[in-house]
Write a protein that binds this DNA or RNA. Structure first.
Length: 1002
RNA sequence: GCGCUAGUAGCUCAGCUGGCUAGAGCACACCCCUGAUAAGGGUGAGGUCGAAGGUUCGAGUCCUUUCUGGCGCACCA
């Protein structure tokens, strides 16, 4: 039977709830044991003579109760306002808030965004800059309007709306929308404040404010003046029943049976089609074929008939909306697909190779012969004749062509479809739309269709095609089709006149287009964090179409355009500015309440060079388009930064990476058009919050995290600490477990601060700097303060770069390693046991005071509450860290300190090994340093404390570090050290010289 | 489908222009301390760098393919 190992014994004891230290084997050297027992017996004999830590700064943060108190204190002392006054002459830091949409409580994304922005704001403030950060909200737009309409619908109030005039109706909806937006702004503002963000909450911006609206119109006026605002056709979802455009959100998809037709479009040039398929258009004569260019003769008898294309083939398309055929202008193919020239029951036509069988089967064809095949790319450019309109169309390329349905050749009517429209733009085709707003054809179609409803046209078109031999096959087809959510009637795509900002129109200022200028700006003038944002934005700018800025809705800023008696549109830079002035006075509701004359009361046609001849305000009729909300948000640089004299451009815009497409791009374009200068110097983006498995958060999956609940459980400072630690450039995984981890990390920092504060009890801060002037470069203080100084530099630089994680890690390392593990551990003995006013002790206190002060300033950016709480504990209840700025710290330490620290690591290793010999408590150990370390003689006085041992000796002829067992020597009952001076004193106690002196006994 | 982007220890992340046995912190394990105590200190274990090919004397790092996420491509903001 073997003896139980110590570990096994331990485990057994642990199970029994007994601590090993109470059960030390008798074989252990007695000194340690006696010491321990002595301590336990006379625990308090000298305890009261020590300078033990003492502070009112609690270990438990209690953030949930304490943070609101800080908020109240800052609020009542008008912190934001005071900072504006105090920094009036300081260098401004122009920063601008992108407006979140006011349609619900805040979510994790808002928290991330707002907290990151607050780091920027507070970082700049700590640098001593003047920062006027104005929070804003986007208030107009469809989501609010849709929500309001849905509620009205549910309450049965929409019927009443329908009895009103158009303008009354707009106003009724607008009132409801304004109320809803205002409600959510109030809710969100409170939640954002609860995140301890510092901003001008007393004077925020809303896009619905009259002044904001007026400044947005001024941007529009500038763009009109620069010549980039154009009017053009674009297809939109259209409700025939309500004669109105609809948004995607207003559509309901329902099954509907339609007539689907396969139509043959006759090729216009047989020879070119033949060439595309590698066939000959004419049956060659002998002489023709004897020389074909290659010099090889071809015998006419050998020529296969199949090489001749002797009939004119057709292109076969498939559509479920025969009524759009009159608007057909093109046929789209995919360049990479294979297409077949095929004879189906005597009919020679072209369709995708992969679909020949399916189409033939569907139509019940009996004889199918594939004559030749070619790539889609070869077909592009071929012309065809429209089956019943007197014109030709072209085959074009489009990558959305699929082989799932139809024929692989897509009927394209740019006036009746989104894809078709884009293709039309690319190919230079007009958005031709012969359908009027009531769903009937206009006079541009063949006579037999004019004035007819498109729904009755479906069958007539099919009949006509059948009669003329163009209908290959038709059948009833059940499919999902969009319907108007209110009237439940089917919706159509219909091209309507819209306002655009043209991105390829030369701007008057410098003759460059907005696209060119935008690409220049992001290439040369704007910084990106992360850097790949530049490429991403470039790709978007290169491919983006003209910006459609008009919407046919109620809830938004009206586009101040009128129709004149001659049917032309009236809108000039001066007229827009005049309406802007009116809106500034009355708000944009005026558009629905006032006459054109009133709206243009600030307009004088005589002084407007752009005014049309024969202008008569009395004949004007208001148009009712509103702006795309992005135009409003994209004008915030003017409506906020310039209107409030904050400065232009902004140092940075900081938003989620989705805003490359959104706010960034749609601020850049109007700003470049209106001013020629980008509204931001730098774009910083963050990723999206996903769950712990990397999946996006969604209510339907149920993996969302509620911000309110998070704040209630952890408090804002812990949430902010989590944000500070995220790698925000990419997706950010979040889980409530992660906040627990952040809470642990926070506590570590808090405890370090608490310990610093607790050793400053009774310290006179006014003596600090003179004490620190006298410290030596080899002192622990010099080293620690140099670490504080370099950390502060690192933190400041990292915050400037928005590398918050780096800053957080540096702060954490300072607390955990430099302070807690090394400096505080090393100075514990002198702080506790030295005479209260010993110079060694006071030097440590001075250094700790400065470290604590610097730590508060660094943490002010991340932990506004905790930093201020600590700062007040350090500097008095009237102090506020948020009105402070960084101090310049210049501390240098002896360059040999890196060696000292490396030596410390070695010694720690040796001490660990010595545990096997029974020297478990470092205070039972002495250390003999080899001759290789004798050049560190200057540090020897501090080395025992730095190593946590009782004694360090520079030993002669020593070749390696040696740990000496001091358990045989007496230990000081007060300091628990065995330093060689320990002996019996006059009070009967066993003390070292230092401790006896501290007690004033011999 | 297209564009951009990420995938390194259980978790969160470093690893620059290719080059010593791939680093931190947290968590974990073990130990010390019990005069920072619902604290503090020390030591340690842990990774086929998403997968498969390739270039190279040498690849987490470059190339190709592929898998799995995220964002963007609409009158959603």
């Amino acid at each position: 039977m073997r003896r139980k190992s110590k570990d096994e014994l331990k485990v057994a004891l642990k199970v029994l709830g007994i601590r090993m230290s109470d059960q030390k084997p008798a074989s252990n050297p007695p000194a340690s044991k006696e010491g321990r027992e002595g301590r336990e017996g006379k625990e308090s004999r000298y305890k009261d003579t020590l300078n033990l830590p003492k502070t009112s700064f609690a270990m438990k943060a209690n953030l949930i109760q304490a943070e609101p108190q800080s908020m109240k204190r800052w609020d009542e002392s008008h912190l934001f306002g005071r900072l504006q006054v105090a920094r009036e002459t300081a260098e401004p830091f122009v920063f601008h808030d992108g407006p979140p949409y006011a349609n619900g409580p805040i979510h994790m994304g808002h928290m991330l965004n707002k907290v990151l922005k607050d780091f920027v704001v507070r970082g700049a403030l700590m640098e001593g800059r003047r920062v006027r950060f104005v929070p804003g909200w986007d208030t107009h737009g469809l989501p609010i309007e849709h929500k309001v309409m849905t509620e009205l619908h549910e309450k049965g109030k929409t019927a009443k709306l329908d009895t009103l005039t158009a303008e009354q109706r707009h106003m009724a909806i607008r009132r409801e929308c304004a109320a809803a937006a205002t409600k959510f702004i109030g809710l969100q503002a409170e939640q954002m404040k609860r995140l301890l963000t510092l901003a001008d909450y007393a004077d925020p911006y809303y896009t619905l404010m009259p002044n904001y609206e007026a400044k947005t119109l001024e941007v529009f006026a500038d763009l009109v003046e620069q010549g980039v605002v154009v009017r053009a056709l674009k297809p939109v979802h259209w409700s025939i029943a309500n004669k109105t455009a609809l948004a995607e959100a207003e559509l309901e998809y329902e099954d509907r049976e339609d007539l689907s037709v396969y139509v043959d479009f006759e090729a216009a040039d047989r020879a070119k089609v033949a060439a595309a398929f590698g066939l000959l258009a004419e049956a060659p004569t002998t002489s023709d074929t004897s020389t074909d260019g290659s010099g090889v003769g071809v015998e006419s008898e050998d020529v296969d008939d199949s090489r001749f294309l002797d009939v004119t083939p057709s292109f076969m398309i498939w559509t479920t909306t025969p009524w759009t055929l009159p608007a057909n202008l093109a046929i789209a193919v995919h360049e990479k697909y294979r297409y077949a020239l095929v004879e189906i029951d005597g009919n020679t036509t072209i369709l995708a190779s992969d679909l020949v069988a399916a189409v033939a089967k569907k139509a019940g064809a009996e004889k199918v012969v594939v004559r030749a095949e070619t790539d889609g790319a070869k077909l592009v450019g071929l012309a065809y004749r429209h089956p019943f309109c007197p014109r030709e169309g072209r085959v074009v390329s489009a990558d959305y062509v699929t082989l799932e349905d139809g024929t692989g050749l897509v009927h394209t009517a740019p006036g009746h479809g989104a894809d078709d429209y884009r293709t039309g733009l690319k190919e230079g085709l007009p958005a031709y739309c012969p359908v009027r707003e009531d769903g009937t054809y206009d006079d541009t179609v063949p006579e037999w269709l004019r004035g007819k409803s498109i729904w009755t046209a479906n069958a007539e078109v099919a009949d006509r095609l059948r009669a003329s031999g163009h209908l290959f096959y038709d059948h009833k087809f059940m499919h999902s089709y969009p319907h108007d959510w209110r009237s439940k009637t089917p919706v159509i795509f219909r091209a309507t006149e819209q306002w655009f900002v043209g991105v390829d129109v030369p701007v008057k200022r410098d003759g460059k287009t907005l696209r060119q200028r935008a690409l220049e700006a992001i290439t040369n003038e704007v910084g990106f964090t992360p850097e790949w944002g530049r490429n991403r934005l470039r790709g978007m700018l290169e491919s983006r179409p003209d910006w459609c800025i008009s919407r046919q809705r109620s809830w938004g800023l009206p586009i101040p355009a009128f129709r004149m008696a001659d049917g032309k549109t009236f809108l000039t830079p001066a007229s827009v500015r005049a309406v802007a002035k009116r809106f500034a006075e009355k708000g944009s509701d005026a558009w629905f309440q006032e006459s054109p004359a009133d709206l243009l009361s600030h307009y004088d046609a005589k002084s407007d060079a752009a005014a049309p001849a024969g202008f008569d305000v009395a004949t004007l009729v208001k148009l009712h388009d509103i702006f795309d909300v992005w135009f409003e948000a994209g004008s915030s640089w003017n409506s906020v930064l310039r209107a409030r004299n904050i400065g232009y451009p902004s140092e940075m815009y900081l938003e989620g990476s989705d805003q490359h497409r959104g706010w960034f791009q749609l601020s850049l374009l109007p700003a470049l058009g209106a001013t020629g200068v980008a509204p931001f110097k730098r774009l910083v983006t963050h990723g999206f919050i996903v769950d712990k498995d990397g999946r996006k958060m969604s209510k339907s999956i149920g993996n969302t995290i509620d911000v309110e609940a998070l704040l209630k459980e952890f408090g804002a400072d812990v949430c902010r600490w989590w944000v500070a630690g995220t790698d925000y450039e990419n997706d950010i995984r979040a889980d409530s477990e992660f906040f627990k981890v952040s809470g642990e990390s926070y506590r570590k920092v808090r405890n370090t601060i608490r310990y610093l504060l607790s050793n400053l009890d009774g310290f006179d801060a006014s003596e600090r700097d003179s004490i620190l002037e006298g410290i030596s470069h080899t002192s622990l203080e010099s080293w620690m303060l140099a670490q504080v100084a370099s950390t502060q530099e690192l933190v400041r630089d990292a915050v400037r770069r928005c590398a918050f994680r780096e800053a957080q890690q540096a702060i954490y390392h300072l607390c955990n390693e430099t302070l807690s593990a090394i400096y505080c551990a090393a100075t514990k003995d002198r702080l506790y046991c030295d005479a209260r006013s010993s110079s060694r002790r006071r030097a440590a206190q001075a250094a700790m005071h400065l470290a604590c002060d610097a730590l508060c300033r660094m943490l002010a950016v991340f932990l506004p509450h905790t930093a201020d709480e600590a700062f007040r504990a350090l500097s008095g209840d009237n102090a506020c860290v948020h009105t402070e700025r960084y101090h310049t710290l210049v501390f240098t330490a002896d360059p040999r300190w890196s060696e000292v620290l490396a030596l410390r690591e070695l010694v720690k290793g040796e001490l660990e090994k010595a545990k096997a010999r029974g020297v478990e408590n470092p205070l039972d150990a002495g250390v003999m340093l080899p001759t290789s370390h004798h050049h560190l003689e200057d540090f020897v006085a501090d080395l025992p404390d730095l190593f946590g041992v009782s004694r360090v000796v520079m030993a002669k002829d020593q070749s390696s570090i040696e740990v000496v067992d001091l358990r045989g020597e007496p230990r000081c009952e007060r300091s628990w050290k065995r330093d060689g001076t320990v002996r019996q004193r006059s009070d009967g106690g066993t003390l070292s010289d230092r401790d006896a002196e501290a007690l004033g006994i011999a």
